[in-house]
């Protein structure tokens, strides 16, 4: 938003001078104002979740709503997390998420490299066909997919939840291929040409030139895949039968049923379940820093 504002023309100059101090400070103030203004609505859902997690059911639904729990129902957390084997569910979920992230990042970026920077006949058609896979609502492919895994004897294992991610194109993974392709297309092709003249193989170009320059995009794919797997409910529900293999999202769903929703537990467990992914985002966002991509190229 701030970038769209038009400060005095001279303010755009790179070298700061004493005369520009005022407008620049003003601009900074506006920036913080915009950030603070945006943070209020974006914090709302999270604050709501936290306050609900610390409330008794009866206080949670008082109208008009209250913001400060009274009393602080810390027992929601202890009781929710011991009501089910959440530690086991956590381990299961981490296993599935890690296998999926590694597979997705590797195979999707390889495919995206091929679809963006290598020339071969049928490339665009193949890409279009791949992309069409996400255009059919999953509701009608769910049963055939389930039957396929059953025929392969993979029900009640993590295989249906992890193996497709090692074949980039499977399911929603195509979005990642597409995303990486878009990023790879913005990297100057002179870099490839130069490397090929030096006798490099496409793999080398991919691994030593394109990948290092695409860290922000790789991070995006990592974050999305991790969160997607972390929150996936339908997959584990369909393919897992043994409660020993259940995941966090299945555990969360048990606090809700048609007869009875244990709101305090549900909110507390939800807050606990998303804590790791918040931390993950916090640490990975540092890769969205200007200069990671193209600083080396300019010279």
């Amino acid at each position: 938003m701030t970038a769209v504002r038009t400060p005095p023309r001279r303010a755009g100059r790179v070298a700061p001078t004493a005369g520009l101090r005022g407008p620049r400070r003003f601009r900074k103030a506006l920036l913080y104002l915009a950030l603070a203004g945006g943070a209020v609505p974006t914090l709302l859902p999270f604050v709501w979740l936290l306050r609900s997690a610390l409330m008794q059911d009866t206080q949670m639904f008082v109208a008009p709503p209250e913001w400060i729990p009274s009393p602080f129902q810390w027992s929601n957390f202890t009781e929710a997390l011991t009501a089910q084997p959440f530690w086991l569910y956590f381990v299961n979920t981490v296993i599935i998420a890690v296998i999926s992230v590694v597979g997705t990042v590797l195979t999707c970026s390889v495919a995206a490299f091929s679809f963006s920077r290598l020339r071969w006949r049928g490339r665009n058609v193949a890409f279009a066909v791949l992309l069409s896979g996400v255009m059919l609502p999953y509701a009608v492919t769910l049963i055939p997919t389930f039957v396929m895994w059953q025929e392969l004897g993979a029900l009640d294992t993590f295989v249906p939840l992890t193996v497709p991610s090692w074949f980039a194109g499977a399911g929603g993974g195509v979005f990642n291929v597409f995303l990486l392709r878009q990023f790879f297309l913005t990297i100057p092709f002179e870099l490839d040409e130069a490397a090929y003249i030096d006798g490099a193989s496409p793999w080398r170009v991919f691994w030593t030139i394109v990948m290092p320059l695409s860290k922000p995009a790789i991070v995006v794919v990592t974050i999305f895949t991790f969160i997607g797997t972390w929150n996936d409910f339908l997959g584990p529900l369909l393919y897992l039968n043994d409660e020993e293999k259940y995941t966090l999202s299945l555990g969360l769903a048990s606090f809700q049923s048609i007869y009875l929703t244990q709101w305090g537990y549900l909110m507390a467990a939800s807050a606990a379940v998303i804590a790791p992914i918040i931390a993950l985002f916090f640490f990975l966002q540092r890769y969205f820093i200007e200069g990671v991509t193209l600083t080396g190229i300019k010279n």
């Binding site: 296998i99 993979a154 029900l155 009640d156 294992t157 295989v159 992890t162 193996v163």
Partner: peptide, 24 residues
């Protein structure tokens, strides 16, 4: 196709320590 599957599946299986389930 199946063999390919099994290969891919084995890696995940090993890591997950998951066993095949049988119902009934």
């Amino acid at each position: 196709r199946r063999d390919l599957f099994r290969m891919g599946g084995l890696a995940a299986l090993g890591a997950a320590g998951a066993a095949c389930g049988s119902s009934g």
